[in-house]
Design a protein around this nucleic acid. Structure first.
Lengths: 139, 139
DNA sequence: CGACTTGCGTTACAATATAACGTAATCTAA
DNA sequence: TTAGATTACGTTATATTGTAACGCAAGTCG
């Protein structure tokens, strides 16, 4: 196998994991420039795409951003629901058992052969909801 | 009210409807330049955003593109499923009755307050599936 | 008619992403 | 070990998508 780009992939993944929320490719790039001053966008995008293939990273389509897959063990057979907090930027993967079947059923009836599901829900996470209970939004 | 930008909005909507599939803002821009040689991106984006507010246009997050809402009457209470054909680019809105409740239920349990749903399914539409039955994909 | 408000058009630029090319790293076989 | 084939990486350059900000035109109200 490659072995060559894997260091870069590991570093990109580490950056995303340390952050814990979604980052743009250029945010990742800026962090990596600390180590590799001459790094360029395609390097980051290649690492990100490889990681996405492997399932270690998800792309958040509605943010044009990327997030480390924090699957604590639950098998996300690349069809989970992402909940995105618009306050703090946190992104969680939620398993949604019946949902995919439901969706596939609807589309099958229309003759549509589904291949990739993008299910992203924007809103406010439990932490930020709680915070808004006390002092309002952003003082 | 405005009244002033409404011509532009109407023209943008007309372009999207004529096309029938998703277009990038710059695709729309190119078409509009036939009439308005000096038109610039912000004009198009403003029209698109206004149309999205009104519900006449949807943004396709996973394509960074826009599509005219072809609701033939069915009330898409801004929470429908979009099926996107990766072969021909057609985009359909599908009603998904139970789905939103299902989704909300899952997220409520996690304490997440949902505000905007992005549900986009990529695949092959019935027309393109049929075509692929005879001559394969793209000779 | 003149002052006020709204928001449009334009310029300029920011943010996101990829094409393409030369080359360095790895692999295979002699 | 090395010559040759192959892979895929780094770099340069550019394409694509999106927006900040400013000045002025169009509508509004006295």
């Amino acid at each position: 196998m490659t072995t060559r780009g894997e260091q870069m992939q590991a570093q990109v993944l580490a950056v995303l994991k340390r952050k814990g929320s979604a980052m743009s490719a250029y945010d990742v790039l800026d962090v990596l420039r600390a180590d590799h001053p001459k790094i360029a966008p395609p390097t980051v995008y290649r690492a990100l795409n490889a990681l996405i293939e492997k399932g270690g990273v998800h792309r958040v389509e509605s943010l044009n951003a990327f997030v480390a897959c924090n699957s604590d063990g639950h098998s996300h057979d690349h069809a989970s629901v992402m909940s995105i907090c618009d306050d703090c930027g946190s992104v969680e993967e939620n398993a949604a058992p019946g949902l995919m079947d439901n969706l596939s059923g609807i589309l099958d009836k229309a003759g549509f052969a589904a291949q990739r599901h993008v299910i992203e829900v924007h809103g406010t996470c439990s932490d930020c909801v709680t915070e808004e209970m006390s002092g309002d939004s952003k003082p």
